[in-house]
Design a protein around this nucleic acid. Structure first.
Length: 819
RNA sequence: GCCGAAGUGGCGGAACUGGCAGACGCGCCGGACUCAAAAUCCGGUUCCCCUCGGGGAGUGCGGGUUCGAUUCCCGCCUUCGGCACCA
């Protein structure tokens, strides 16, 4: 063997094997025959698809390498693994990238997709390249539009005027989920609230299903479920009807604390509340209220939250239904029109915000609930006492309800009022309908025609897709760029044939990605988005992998879409992703790795230097993949050295006879233990970094005991186990050892016989202090164990020749003499 | 404020069911090879004390359970993440 062939040259071998995999379509998997029974042997492994807004960054490398390890291991365990790839082409990320370059988004995304595809091949990921899609492909978005029409028919997609979030920089409406702390998720600009006519999906109808059906999920990170629960924000309470004094007009409020109704001392309306104007019309308060409402409207959401609470009185009263008492009605912008009814009953003794407001304006504070052991029933609560809500509170000063516990009080008061038609138990949600229309060019057109005669008319299915017109000037202008494509906009009304115009807003990119995971199953279908039988065969996705940033975006939307598709009879499952894995964020040079911070690490730069195998292995060796990880340039060197060591060790063993059958040496045992450890870590614990350490340990051991009769077997084991991480070098070394097509070899199984421990270690203590450790036969009987332990010199020394007062024996683990 | 996660060497991190804390890697120290260097290989590396046999302390802090706790329980502290004028 020459010096040349012995040097590890990742570039050469990686190109070589990637070509083999491409030529053989090594990771393609066929669809089932019609009528095929879904069996346990199928697996769908999916990673969130990339935006083609740039090139691959290390976050992608981590994401897709996790999926790759899962894919390889499951394939080698004999499963049929579907593992496709696509591009989330439409949307702001890609369009903004195109604007920056001054080119057309189609051109930029086509180029980026080509680059990303090439980079993915260079990373050697085991992708079924026959199943590749782009959401901006008319053959794909035709079905996005088709699905929209099905939602529309059911009233689940609708248009209305509503206060919506507007990003002044990106010049488009955003979904609530795309607003982070009052700022645009993409560009960071502070968002405004505008009243606009927009398209919405009725996701709020599915709030309970989205919560309750979390039970159907096999394994999702708790933090994602918590985030979704928080986002949906279900709270049980009651709608209670107050009436305006004098007019008797109804003024319903939503409250989660009906037990405190007797403590309501004033009422507050949001400035946007429709009744505000009529309440003050013609009164001495009119001018001041109008001025307040106007001023509140000009404040940004952030200002509204940060300032001290302020408000103005209307001079009118509301009648508290529990006791008929009149309480003043105020207008204040700490009450939000979007939540509940836009009006609240204020209980300053039991709500922090109401308390602050009451203090400022000298409004009465009446305590009506107290913790158990606090003030007794009849006792007058101290004026100004503010009591925070706790679990075991009792009602006081609440008429006939005094003495009840808070939960009992809630139920009793609500049913008492409900009997008079003045209250009903209701549930409030934080979740709003998903506003999905965008005033941007680069998105899926909404297949609706506006006709002066017929109103909104859906585009007939057979006219789909409504193709996005090619515009040279597509820049955002605050209104939809599509409106300037006059020839495209002008259209015959599908219903009456009269002159009509197309909808010019486009869909949010999250609509495109809400169903892509099903399209992969049946990519070529041009009669339906997918065949139900095929979809039901592959889905739900067995293992979904992606970043935490989509916890309340994509992951919530996709769950919603799936539920609707199931109700439409399109699929037979309610949840799209059975198991979810969120990889952590990467940190580098003291900050989260991100483009904006300019500290991104590009996988291909490192792949050029060390090879893709080193990058892949290091990406997972950094630490637990579900936690944030620190990229260290020195760390990747360690993996590079490991692969070189593996290379050398295997070549040393290549000339030796292969079999390990019947060989029982320390190294053979080590190899078997490593198999168990690696298999267990990947399959049971879903841990990807410790297996690498285990293989490193094995390789070190082989290097130290190259003459062990099992050394060659141990080397084979190491190659086989590292294959999911470093498939190219593993393939090459497998060849050196005389094998071929390792990617199709069975995953190694440990020989049970090698793992039986004939001896166990027993800890011997005197008075709880460890004095000796004995290796004894596993089946040593108790008495023998005790006498063995007692005969130890070191133990006798501490027993001082005396008899132990007590002896504790845990077979196989411990003998403790208590003196 | 509410909810969730996490605190282990100089660093990233191991430790499965309560049983030798610090696997593996980085860094550092020493050695081999070399004219020399790089690369590679071998050994050492939690801290303190030491008569070089060993002894003591140690997994954020304080308690508890246990023969035995990084692991289980109670109470704190700190950090990170999510939600938050949501009534």
């Amino acid at each position: 063997m020459t010096e040349q062939t012995e040097r590890y040259d990742p570039k050469a071998i990686e190109v070589k094997w990637q070509r083999v995999w491409a030529d053989e379509r090594a990771f393609a998997v066929p669809n089932p025959e019609p009528g095929a029974v879904k069996d346990a042997g199928k697996t769908y492994v999916l990673e969130m698809l990339p935006y083609p807004s740039g090139e691959l960054h290390m976050g992608h490398a981590l994401n897709y390498t996790i999926g790759d390890v899962v894919t390889h291991v499951r394939r080698r365990l004999g499963q049929q693994v579907l593992r496709p790839m696509g591009y989330d082409t439409f949307g702001l990320p890609a369009e903004n990238a195109a604007i920056k370059e001054g080119r057309h988004p189609r051109e930029v995304t086509d180029r980026n997709i080509a680059a990303i595809r090439e980079q993915m091949r260079r990373m050697g990921w085991a992708i079924d390249w026959d199943r590749e899609l782009s959401t901006a492909d008319p053959a794909y978005y035709r079905w996005t539009q088709w699905l929209f029409l099905r939602f529309y028919e059911r009233g689940l997609a609708y248009r209305k005027e509503a206060p919506v979030k507007w990003c002044p920089k990106d010049q488009t409406v955003l979904a609530n989920e795309q607003v982070i702390d009052g700022h645009c998720e993409r560009c960071g600009a502070e968002v405004e609230t505008r009243n606009l006519t927009q398209w919405f999906f009725r996701i709020t109808d599915y709030a309970d299903a989205l919560l309750d059906e979390m039970d159907l999920l096999e394994s999702w990170p708790e933090r994602v479920l918590t985030m979704q629960r928080n986002w949906i924000g279900r709270s049980e309470g009651a709608r209670v009807v107050f009436r305006v004094g004098g007019s008797g007009e109804e003024l319903p409020v939503f409250t989660t604390r009906p037990d405190t109704l007797f403590g309501a001392t004033f009422m507050v309306l949001a400035p946007e509340h429709p009744l505000v104007e009529s309440l003050v019309a013609g009164s001495e308060h009119e001018a001041a209220v109008r001025e307040y409402v106007r001023h509140a409207g000009s404040r940004t959401n952030v200002e509204r939250e940060q300032k001290e609470k302020d408000g103005v009185p209307t001079g009118r009263n509301a009648i508290n239904p529990v006791n008929g008492e009149p309480i003043p009605i105020w207008v204040a912008d700490y009450v939000l029109m979007e939540y509940g009814t836009g009006a609240i009953m204020s209980v300053p003794a039991h709500d922090e915000r109401d308390h602050a407001f009451a203090e400022r304006y000298g409004l009465p504070i009446v305590q009506v609930v107290a913790p158990e052991g606090g003030p007794e029933g009849g006792e007058e609560p101290k004026a100004g006492a503010y009591v925070a809500h706790t679990e075991n509170e009792r009602l006081l000063g609440s008429g006939e309800f005094s003495g009840l516990s808070a939960p009992e009080g809630k139920r009793a008061i609500v049913s008492w009022l409900a009997a008079r038609g003045e209250a009903e138990a209701t549930i409030g949600y934080r979740l709003r309908d998903w506003g999905f229309s965008r005033q941007r060019y680069w998105g899926c057109p909404i297949p609706i025609v506006h006709c002066p005669e017929c109103g909104e008319v859906p585009v007939p299915d057979d006219e789909l897709p409504v193709v996005l017109p090619e515009l040279t000037d597509y820049l955002p202008k605050g209104r939809s760029p599509l409106a300037s494509a006059e020839d495209w906009v002008r259209v015959e009304c599908p219903r009456c044939g009269g002159e009509a115009s197309r909808e010019t807003d486009t869909m949010d990119t999250f609509v495109d990605s809400s169903w892509y995971y099903i399209r992969y199953c049946d990519l070529a279908n041009d009669e339906a988005p997918f065949d139900r039988e095929i979809a039901d065969y592959w889905l739900p996705v067995n293992q979904y992998i992606g970043g935490i940033e989509h916890a309340v975006l994509h992951l919530l939307y996709a769950r919603f879409f799936t539920k609707v598709m199931q109700e439409l009879g399109l699929v037979g499952f309610r949840e799209p992703f059975a198991r979810l894995f969120n990889q952590g964020m990467l940190h580098y040079q003291g900050a989260k790795m991100s483009k904006s911070k300019g500290n991104v690490v590009e996988p291909l730069v490192y792949a050029d230097r060390y090879g893709a195998d080193t990058v892949r292995t290091y990406a997972l060796f950094m630490g637990p993949a579900e936690e944030d990880m620190l990229w260290q340039d020195a760390g990747i060197e360690g993996v590079w050295r490991f692969l070189n060591r593996l290379w050398r060790v295997v070549h040393e063993q290549a000339g030796r006879p292969g079999s390990a059958a019947g060989v029982d040496t320390p190294l053979a045992r080590k190899a078997h233990q490593t198999i168990v450890k690696v298999t267990d870590d990947i399959n049971r614990r879903f841990s990807f970094h410790t297996p690498i350490a285990a293989v490193m340990e094995l390789v070190n051991e082989i290097g130290r005991s190259a003459d062990d009769p099992a050394a060659r077997f141990a080397a084979e084991t190491a190659v086989s186990l590292i294959q999911p991480y470093a498939p190219h070098i593993a393939e090459e070394l497998w060849g050196v050892l005389g094998g071929e097509r390792l990617w199709e070899e069975a995953w190694p199984e440990a020989d049970e016989a090698m793992l039986v421990r004939e001896t166990v270690e027993v800890v011997v203590q005197v008075n709880g202090k460890v004095r000796e450790r004995l290796q004894v036969a596993a089946e040593t009987p108790e008495e023998e164990l005790v006498s063995l332990a007692r005969s130890s010199e070191r133990v006798q020394e501490h027993l001082n020749g005396g008899e132990p007062r007590k002896t504790i024996v845990v077979p196989g683990k411990l003998v403790n003499f208590v003196v």
